[in-house]
Design a protein around this nucleic acid. Structure first.
Lengths: 195, 195
DNA sequence: GTCTATATGACGATAGAC
DNA sequence: GTCTATCGTCATATAGAC
């Protein structure tokens, strides 16, 4: 069979990451072999090692990049002045961002246990930073008397679980648009915090 | 079932299922080998095949048993008369039941993609039955005018995601008792549905 | 029912050709 | 950068002894 040759680093690198994201989300990290990943990209298995030192690094890099992008996107998002406006901004931001990256979101909470300890700690720290953003909003609203949240830590975890859950059932072209979903969830979030 | 000299079926069978539940939850179905499962039980790998025809059946049986027990437990739970009382009963039941079976709950959400298609459909049908229980409560409350839930289907999914999320962070002996958690979440659920 | 031993194949990762 | 080929290990599952 004829050999292929030539350099394709500029296109193959992103293709490896995109294929890994898709396959890890669909089948799980442990169930995806380097051979099947290579087949998805259209190269032989050995060629993947020009782009990652090993399989574990590939998983970690995907999760790290996702969390970095999440934090950066929230840092740049318009947020409003008062706690109520900030909570609405966070709600709509979280749903919109996560729906745009369903595969990465799925992996970020399904494959944590497949990270080596040091990698796990790094991702957990980034997740904690993101949760702290929501908790600060809830705490500010509580301090100002506009929210009624008896336990801001629990409320943070409860709301993020509720909002992230959208990615498990939302399907493009279904009954509701993303904006419809954002509106309905914002209604529930606002009521849940007593605003 | 006749006992054989030297047999331990009565204790080994449950031990296999318990070990599989624990290991699948901690490491993931694909990452657990029959060898490591056997080691956890204290037998050789070949002996496991006296209790399951294959690894896939082991996973399916665990998930099926969990869903059956969930539905049976809810069917027998005290529920109250009006929608508000029923919603409170559901909230506290769901948290309590899931915290008692954190491993099974974890697997039920994480390993669905590792089920063969027919097995997947069976588990999804059971999950749908459980969700329908909550949706019926929300619909009844909406019809009677005691809830303000614009979309009962979305509210069902949102509330279950929120409540199930407890299993991802709750640790025995932490700051809050199970009953504390139930109270705090019920407060949020009640507000979220506008009651 | 559990053991030892094994059939059969896939796994992650590397070496060297081009 | 990608190929072919391969190393050493591990996987699921089965066979036959006791």
């Amino acid at each position: 069979m004829a050999r292929k040759s030539g350099s394709h680093a500029e296109i193959t690198g992103p293709r490896v990451r995109a294929a890994a994201l898709r396959l890890f989300a669909r089948q799980g990290y442990a169930a995806v072999s380097m051979r099947s990943l290579a087949a998805e990209v259209g190269v032989q298995a050995g060629a993947l090692y020009a782009y990652t030192p090993d399989k574990q690094s590939l998983l970690f890099d995907l999760l790290k990049a996702h969390m970095d992008e999440l934090l950066a996107a929230w840092a740049e998002a318009p947020k409003g002045a008062d706690p109520l406006a900030r909570l609405e901004a966070f709600t709509r931001f979280h749903i919109r961002f996560n729906l745009e990256r369903a595969d990465a979101v799925f992996i970020s909470y399904m494959e944590l246990r497949n990270l080596e300890p040091a990698n796990f700690r790094a991702i957990e720290a980034l997740r904690g930073s993101y949760e702290a953003e929501l908790e600060a909003i809830l705490q500010a609203g509580q301090d100002e008397g506009v929210f009624a949240v008896p336990d801001t830590k629990l409320a943070t975890l409860a709301l993020i679980a509720m909002l992230t859950g959208v990615t498990t059932w939302y399907r493009e072209g279904g009954r509701l648009s993303r904006s419809d979903v954002g509106q309905i969830y914002w209604d529930m979030v606002r009521k849940a915090v007593g605003a």
